[in-house]
C-alpha cells in the first residue's frame, strides 16, 4: 500500500526528480502545496508553463532567452570581437554582474567529464567554432576568453578548447585564478593559497 493517496505520492515522486531534492524535502513541498490556496498553486503552475513556453536557448550563444537571438547577441553596442565562454547560464550572470565585460558570450552547457559520459559532442562546441568563421555582416572575432570553472573538468575543457581554437588564428585567453578579493588571506584554503603563490607576479 502507498503511504499517501496516489495523487500525493505522484507529486512527491515528481519533486524527487528535481536536483537537490530528497524524499523529505519532496514531502515538505507537496504538503505545502496541499495546504496552499488554489490561487497560489495556479501561480506556480503558470510560472512553470510560462518558462517552458517562452524561454528557449539563443540560436547563437545558447544562453537562456525569451527572444532569439538573445539580448546580448542582438545588442549592437556590445563588443562583437570578444566572446567569453562559460559552462552554464548562471556563470554568465556572475560575469555580467560586474558590468565590466561588454563582449559576447557562449554557453557550453557543461564541461568535459568522461566519468559522466560528457565528451566534446555533448557540449556546444561546434556552434562556437561556427561563430569564429568570418561572416559578411559581422565584425571578426579577435579574442575568446575561456571562463570555465577552476576545477579539473573546467580546466580540461579550457585546454581542449584552446588547442582547438588557436589554429583558427584567434587570441585565446583564460581567466585568472587566485584569492577572493575583499576577504582576509587567513580565509583562503591551502590549495588556493598554493596556486596564488605559484602565480605571483612582479610589481
Amino acid at each position: 500500500m502507498l503511504d499517501y493517496a496516489e495523487p500525493v505520492t505522484k507529486l512527491i515522486d515528481e519533486f524527487k526528480r528535481l536536483p537537490g531534492v530528497g524524499h523529505k524535502s519532496a514531502q515538505r513541498l507537496a504538503f505545502y502545496l496541499l495546504k496552499a490556496t488554489p490561487e497560489e498553486a495556479d501561480r506556480l503552475i503558470e510560472a512553470i508553463r510560462e518558462v517552458k513556453e517562452k524561454i528557449t536557448f539563443c540560436s547563437i550563444c545558447n544562453n537562456l532567452t525569451d527572444v532569439d537571438p538573445c539580448r546580448y547577441c542582438d545588442n549592437p553596442t556590445r563588443d562583437h570581437t570578444m566572446i567569453c565562454v562559460v559552462e552554464e547560464p548562471y556563470n554568465l550572470v556572475a560575469i555580467e554582474k560586474t558590468r565590466e565585460y561588454h563582449g559576447l558570450y557562449h554557453v557550453l552547457h557543461g564541461a568535459l567529464s568522461p566519468i559522466r559520459g560528457i565528451g566534446p559532442d555533448e557540449l556546444k562546441i561546434r556552434s562556437l567554432i561556427e561563430r569564429l568563421r568570418p561572416q559578411d555582416d559581422a565584425p571578426e572575432v579577435e579574442e575568446v576568453i575561456l571562463a570555465t570553472n577552476p576545477n579539473t573538468e573546467g580546466e580540461a575543457t579550457a585546454n581542449y578548447l584552446s588547442r582547438l581554437l588557436k589554429p583558427l588564428g584567434v587570441r585565446v585567453t583564460r581567466i585568472g585564478m587566485g584569492l577572493p578579493v575583499g576577504s582576509d588571506l587567513e580565509y583562503a584554503d591551502e590549495v588556493t593559497m598554493h596556486k596564488a603563490l605559484t602565480n605571483r607576479h612582479v610589481m
Binding site: P114, G119, A158, N159, R163
Partner: peptide
C-alpha cells in the same frame, strides 16, 4: 577521468578520434 576516457577509447572502432580528447587530461 582519463581512465574513464581510455576505457571508452579501447572499446571504440576508431581510437584515433580520442587523441585530441586525451590531451587536456594529459596536460593536467
Amino acid at each position: 577521468q582519463k581512465n574513464s576516457l581510455l576505457r571508452s577509447a579501447s572499446d571504440a572502432d576508431d581510437p584515433t578520434r580520442f587523441f585530441p580528447m586525451l590531451e587536456p587530461w594529459n596536460d593536467q
